[in-house]
Write a protein that binds this DNA or RNA. Sequence first.
DNA 1: TTTATAATATTGGTTAACCAGAATTTTGCG
DNA 2: CGCAAAATTCTGGTTAACCAATATTATAAA
Lengths: 234, 234
Amino acid sequence: MKLEINVKNDNREVQNSIISQIRDLINYKNLEPGDKIPSERMLSDKFGVSRSNVRDAIQKLEFYGILSSIPQSGTFVANIGVTALNGMIDDILRLKEPDFKSLVETRILLELKTARLASLRRTEADLIQMEDALNAYSEKVINGEKAVQEDLLFHLAIAKASGNSTLNTLMLMITPGIITNFEEYHVCSEDLAFNGIQEHRDIFEAIKSKNPGLAKEKVKVHFKALYQYCYSIE
Amino acid sequence: MKLEINVKNDNREVQNSIISQIRDLINYKNLEPGDKIPSERMLSDKFGVSRSNVRDAIQKLEFYGILSSIPQSGTFVANIGVTALNGMIDDILRLKEPDFKSLVETRILLELKTARLASLRRTEADLIQMEDALNAYSEKVINGEKAVQEDLLFHLAIAKASGNSTLNTLMLMITPGIITNFEEYHVCSEDLAFNGIQEHRDIFEAIKSKNPGLAKEKVKVHFKALYQYCYSIE
DNA sequence: TTTATAATATTGGTTAACCAGAATTTTGCG
DNA sequence: CGCAAAATTCTGGTTAACCAATATTATAAA
């Protein structure tokens, strides 16, 4: 286990090193938006790393919109000036693994918004999906079983009903981190699960009745305990 | 250009096909959290695709915390039950490219939060970095130059000062989409740039004086025009 | 039969060779 | 000399062979 972590850290360090070297190269050569950076082979040669390492680093910078690869042609600096480029790369290099508190803080923010938007935009199909998730959750809790998954699916159904694809994506992205930390910190709200049923239903009803204010309020209630717990462990 | 889009779509379709086949396989074999899925070679053989395609699909599912690869050992179903697994994979398969409206909607939400948190948590170093970005922005605008990058860097500096690593990451992730769409929709607020200087300074001063309510209010003012424009093009 | 050890098979990761298409250079005709 | 066409080089992407670490099986000693 220790080994695995080290391996991942090593890879990350290698990748960050390559990224910063690419940044230096762009600055040194005074490359501007749209210019082509050297080929992957030249970079792997110059940096003394494997080409796949270079490809991974480029892929990461592509993800953040800084570079753009065109097959059989080259990799180009995106339509973003050197100032922003340097700033963004510095930020990317300094990105830390998200801590529990920031994850929860962000999740609550997103959930308040998705619930509000869902109450304005939800379709009948959305309602059906949410109610299915809600029923699955209730059933499990009543039978005394763990219902973390069903809990999660209900919230993801809300995100989908929000009609905001970006929020939906962001919710999906932070979810695994939430789950991991929940288990690590033993945030097993089994005793609170019965309350959870009613809280979920309240949120659902608010969304169903197209009442954004009420929906937001009910989400606040639902996350009150988590919110306080999260701020207490700091 | 058309070709490039098609290629990307094709790749995406192949990847989605593999992802759904992996999901089907997990369901068919009744795999549970912690179980090992077949090796990459077996999957590429069974699905009739290249091993690198399988690796890419697995990497994506790893990103969303659904699978976990351990070198020289295998790829395992993460600690998440089949119910949530199926729901999340369905969501991932349906993820759409974010539209402009959802991007702006999300950006404003995040900016309101980061400004508020920054006013509570900003360090002296944060203030220096924000002021540097602010001055660089003002200088450009006064000289009649475009200052999109400097604008951006100011807002990223706020995100960093928020002390919330998750929010910082999310801001970085949606930024390229924002830039792309800004150019596509010609949201060049050059005429509004002079207003922007004062608006930025207002936000900065609110954060500096540790006034979260005021910071939020000033961000609202700053994004008012964008907000209305975004809701008008629908 | 049980257990410790060695041999084998399997795994994800890495490297190098290969591919099709784009960009560049060279060629050859007018 | 000008310019179109052909040959060559160069590109990111793909495939297949290889690697070291792991998991499994076979073996043998107690």
